[in-house]
Every structure is written in C-alpha cells, then in structure tokens.
Design a protein around this nucleic acid. Structure first.
Lengths: 192, 192
DNA sequence: ATCTAAACTTGACTTATGTCAATTGCAAAT
DNA sequence: ATTTGCAATTGACATAAGTCAAGTTTAGAT
C-alpha cells in the first residue's frame, strides 16, 4: 500500500528502520467541518498530515477581517511553525473546511523524534527551507501577477480547493474581495 | 565593546565559551558598491552578517524585470537559504548597494558549527522560524495595506534604505512601479 | 570640468480592483 | 417542508496603481 505517509517521507533519505519508527509515531484523528485544529491563542499540540478532506489557516488582519493564509489538501503538512517549534500562543487559526482525517504526531513525541533521529531534524530543516522558498515565490506572484492569474495557478496546484472551498476564503487567500472573485469567475467562464 | 556580533547572538542562549567559538568563526570581508555577494546560478559560499553598508537581494520576475526581495542593513543576517543549506545554485542575486563590510563564516566552518554545537542548530531553526513568520506578515501587509502604508512601514523599520537605496529598488520591493513611488513621495511630502 | 547614460519626475490617460447597496441563492436547523 | 441567515451575484461608481511618453536631474566616467 502506497499510503500518504510513504509519499510524504519518501524523499527524506530515511532507512527502513527509521521510516517505520517515524510512521509509527502517527495516528489518525478526525475533525468535523468547522472544527479548529488550532485556535487563536492556543499552543500547537502537534504535527499533522492530511489524509482526507481540506482545511485552511487564517488570521484576522488589520481591518478585523479574516484572511486565509493557507489551504491544506491530501498529503499536506499542517503546522503553525511558530506555535509548534517555540510553543508560543498562535496568531492564526487552523480550521477544517470539511470532514477531515489527519495523521497526528503529538508534540512530545515529535520533539523526541527531533532529538533522537538526526535524519528527522534534517528533514525538518529541509521542509522549512522549502517553505521559505515557497513563501518568497508567493510574494513574487502576488506582486507580478493579476488576480486572475493567481486564481488559475491555485486551480492547477489545488483543484480541490477551487471546487470545495467557499468563495470568500479563496478570495481572501488570493488577496481580493469576494465581489471581485465572483466577477472573475463569471468572466473566465464566458471566455471559454 | 558591544559589537554587532554580540547583538546578533545575545539572545541565542549561548554560554561564554560557545559565544567565543561562534564569534571566532567570523572574519571581516569587504565588497564595493555594485559587487555581488552571491550571483544568479552561484552556490552560496557562506553566511554573512552586515557590519557596515546596505545590500539587497533580487530576482528576475516573469516579466524579465528585477524585483528586490530583501534589503539588508547593519546587523542583518545575509543568507540565501536554499543555496546555503542545500548547496544548490541560487535563483536570486545578493548585491552591495554601497561599500560594505560583512562578517563571514565560510560554508564548511558554518556546517561544522551546525554539527558540533547543538545550540547553533537550535539557533538556526529559531532564525528560520522567525523568517517564516516575517514572510507571512509581509504577505499580509502586501494584501491589506496600500503602497503608501508599506512605504511608511519600511521607513520605520529600515530608515537607511529609504534614504540610501535607489528609488527603483525600493519601488520593486514595495510591489509598485517607479513612477508610482515617485508620486507617492511627492504627495506625502506635500501633506506635511 | 564635461559629457553621458541612467535615474527620477511629471502629465494624461487606462485598467484592475474596491466599495456600497440591492438581490438572489442555498444550506443548515427546526 | 419551512424558515432563516449566511454566501454569492450583480450594478453603478470610486480609487489605487499602471502605462506611455516627455522632460529633468544626477552620478560616474572620461
């Protein structure tokens, strides 16, 4: 069975035994649509990987409006980095947008893996390196591409989100207003 | 003497002996205005901290235009994360915008410190955690604030840059065109 | 000190996206 | 099945920022 966890860890350079040890640290947890995996002010209790369903992370911006900072689909790693690594209270909220099944590693176990498996902390650093790269890329896209282009890109990368997530969350993630996204969708359908 | 390095490492939780070991790994290097610390396609040869002068990191975007992704001032850490940690060729270029003096740790020594000092790799992870946080905040600002507000913010955080960096670099960093920044400056002066 | 190329400024006009307000659609709860 | 409230759509208009093209200024090179 080529399961989600195998896919997630396959390029981490782990040997057979480490792979088993890491996989065994996870267990499945379920959340209902609308439930929070992590709430504002809460402290991250662990590390999650999406088995089924979709989620989002959001913040309240300067105008007191929700802004969706990230969507998560199957195989995505769900972390609030600052809250997990520094065990500080979270400034963002992670919420299930559908029924979800996640694989969880509770924080103490996660920390233990970090200390005991050299390869796991290397893997973590590489993950962070890639996240930094992706955030920089996103910033570049935000500046150089139109909202329509960003919408299409999201559609290619996370088709599930375009189909299943509420319009208003997609809009705030793209950095535009609901009304603009609504028009955008209408106009791009017309063109076909 | 409260030097730059002391300021940079003071909250890293290092003991006296570690602090000495880390500081001794640095040595000063100079670059002239316009020189590259790291070029497109090059591999990062080390880790730098700004002693004097200003620098920028930039990329070539989809429209074949330069876009300044970061400015560096005194005390800032100058890293191209992917190229340093993964020793891959760089997609961005780091350039001196004035005569600069940097403290350098060459890559092999940096790597050695990472392996030999537990505290140093922890410090590195915390640095990355903060960078991720800052990039997320920047993204939020980019979406929710006007160019004028972002300009003022840059002025508070890096007054040196506003005063010394060329307008076009500041504009591309703010995500607007030179012409718009020029007008913006004119108008904000008028208001006073 | 002079020249030259690049950087900056400005005007006139265009375009993308926002704002506000009125409907309409839809899904959860009773 | 009906109600209720949030989500989405749409129109009319406002605004921030872009585009293009013409000048002007400035910093380096000679």
């Amino acid at each position: 069975m080529t399961d989600i966890l195998t896919l997630v860890y396959q390029n981490g350079g782990f040997d057979e035994q480490e792979m088993v040890q890491i996989k065994n640290a996870h267990y499945a947890v379920r959340f209902k649509k609308g439930e929070n995996i992590l709430s504002f002010g809460g402290i991250s209790d662990g590390y999650y990987i999406v088995k089924e369903g979709i989620l989002r992370s959001y913040v309240i911006d300067f105008n007191q409006e929700e802004m969706t900072t990230e969507f998560y689909c199957q195989g995505d790693i769900v972390i609030e980095v600052v809250s997990l690594f520094q065990q500080k209270s979270s400034e963002s909220c992670i919420q299930a947008l559908s029924e979800v099944v996640l694989y969880k590693i509770p924080f103490p176990v996660f920390q233990q893996l970090f200390l005991s498996l050299k390869g796991f902390s290397d893997w973590g650093r590489n993950w962070m390196t890639e996240e930094l790269f992706k955030l920089k890329q996103r910033h570049i896209h935000m500046i150089t591409q139109t909202a329509a282009e960003r919408y299409l890109k999201l559609g290619e990368e996370k088709p599930d989100i375009i189909q299943k997530a509420p319009l208003k969350h997609i809009a705030s993630h793209l950095g535009i207003k609901n009304t603009s996204l609504s028009r955008l969708r209408r106009d791009s359908i017309k063109k076909r």
